[in-house]
C-alpha cells in the first residue's frame, strides 16, 4: 500500500532516434495531488502514455502503484484531453460514465445494476447527475469534462490521471473544476497534466516540470529554475514576466540551493 504512486528510474524515450525524454528519475508518493507542467512538445503527453502503458520506454523502468503500467491501468482512472472529435456521437451521459466500468467480459448490451448504481454515484460526485439521461452532445465543455471525470472515477481507481482537464472550459467553470479536483484529491492520488501554469491551484501538493527531463518540486510552486527549464531561459534572467489575475499567488518562491 505504501509503494509510490509513480516511480520512474533512468527513464528515456524517443521516436526514431530523436529523444523525447532522457534520464528521468521521479518518485511521487500516494495521496499527492501532482501537477505535471511543461511546454507543448516537451514530453508531457509521452510521459502520460508511458504511465498508461501505451508506450514502452527505450531505457529505464516505469512503475505505477508498484506495478507494470499495463497491469496498473485498471487501478488508474484516465481522462484524455477533450477534443471536438466525436462531438455528435450518439450516447447518453450515463452511458458515457458507464464505459468506465467496462472490462473484458462485458458482453451483451445490458449493464448490471451494480455498474449503473456506481456510474450514477460518480455522476453525483462530480455534480452532473441531473443530466444523466441527456445526450452527451447537448452538454457544455465544462459539463462534458465532468462527465469524463465521472467515467474515470467509475472504475474505482486509486489514482486519477487527467490530461489538460481545464483546457476547453470557460474561466468560471475552470475555478469550480479545480475545486472539484481538490476535493477528489483528498481521497485519491491525482495527477494533472497541463501546459498552463494557472492550474496550480491551492489544492496542488507538488509539481513536476517536463521538458525532456523532469524536475520534481515537492511543494505547490514553480521555481525560477523550473520556469527557466520549461521556457528555455536562464533562472535569473527570465525575459517573461508572469502575470495572472484572480488567483492568490505563491508561484515564484526564492530559488533554493540544492543540498
Amino acid at each position: 500500500m505504501n509503494e509510490p504512486a509513480i516511480e520512474l528510474k533512468g527513464l528515456s524515450f524517443g521516436y526514431d532516434g530523436s529523444p523525447v525524454l532522457e534520464g528521468v528519475n521521479l518518485s511521487v508518493p500516494q495521496g499527492e495531488y501532482l501537477a505535471v507542467l511543461g511546454p507543448n512538445g516537451g514530453g508531457k503527453t509521452t510521459l502520460l502514455k508511458l504511465l498508461l502503458g501505451l508506450e514502452q520506454p527505450t531505457a529505464g523502468t516505469v512503475r505505477v502503484l508498484g506495478q507494470e503500467p499495463s497491469q496498473a491501468s485498471r487501478l488508474v482512472g484516465y481522462m484524455p484531453q477533450l477534443t471536438s472529435q466525436g462531438r455528435d456521437f450518439p450516447i447518453s451521459v450515463l452511458q458515457t460514465a458507464l464505459l468506465g466500468r467496462l472490462n473484458s467480459r462485458s458482453w451483451w448490451p445490458r449493464w448490471p445494476r451494480r455498474d449503473r448504481d456506481k456510474a450514477m454515484e460518480c455522476l453525483e460526485r462530480v455534480g452532473v447527475e441531473h443530466l444523466a439521461d441527456k445526450p452527451l452532445s447537448d452538454l457544455s465543455g465544462g459539463q462534458r469534462q465532468r462527465v469524463f471525470i465521472a467515467r474515470a472515477l467509475a472504475g474505482e481507481p486509486r489514482m486519477l490521471l487527467l490530461d489538460e482537464p481545464t483546457a476547453s472550459v470557460d474561466p468560471e467553470g475552470r475555478a469550480s473544476l479545480q475545486e472539484l479536483l481538490g476535493e477528489l484529491a483528498k481521497t485519491l492520488t491525482v495527477v494533472l497534466v497541463s501546459h498552463d501554469l494557472s492550474v496550480i491551484s491551492r489544492h496542488v501538493s507538488c509539481v513536476a516540470c517536463v521538458n525532456r527531463t523532469v524536475h520534481f518540486h515537492p511543494r505547490p510552486e514553480v521555481t525560477p529554475e523550473m520556469f527557466g527549464m520549461m521556457y528555455q531561459c536562464g533562472p535569473h534572467s527570465c525575459p517573461v514576466e508572469m502575470i495572472a489575475h484572480g488567483i492568490p499567488h505563491r508561484v515564484l518562491a526564492p530559488h533554493e540551493v540544492k543540498p
Binding site: L52, G53, L54, S73, R74, V76, Y78, P80, G86, F89, I91, Q95, T96, L99, G100, L102, N103, S104, S106, W107, W108, P109, W111, R151, G155
Partner: peptide
C-alpha cells in the same frame, strides 16, 4: 453486434480508453 455491443460502443467512442479498460 448484440453480443459485443458494449465493446463496439466503447471502441467507437474512444478506442484508447476502451483499450485501457481491457476491451479487445
Amino acid at each position: 453486434v448484440a453480443f459485443a455491443y458494449r465493446g463496439f460502443l466503447a471502441m467507437s467512442f474512444d478506442p484508447e480508453f476502451a483499450g485501457l479498460r481491457g476491451v479487445p
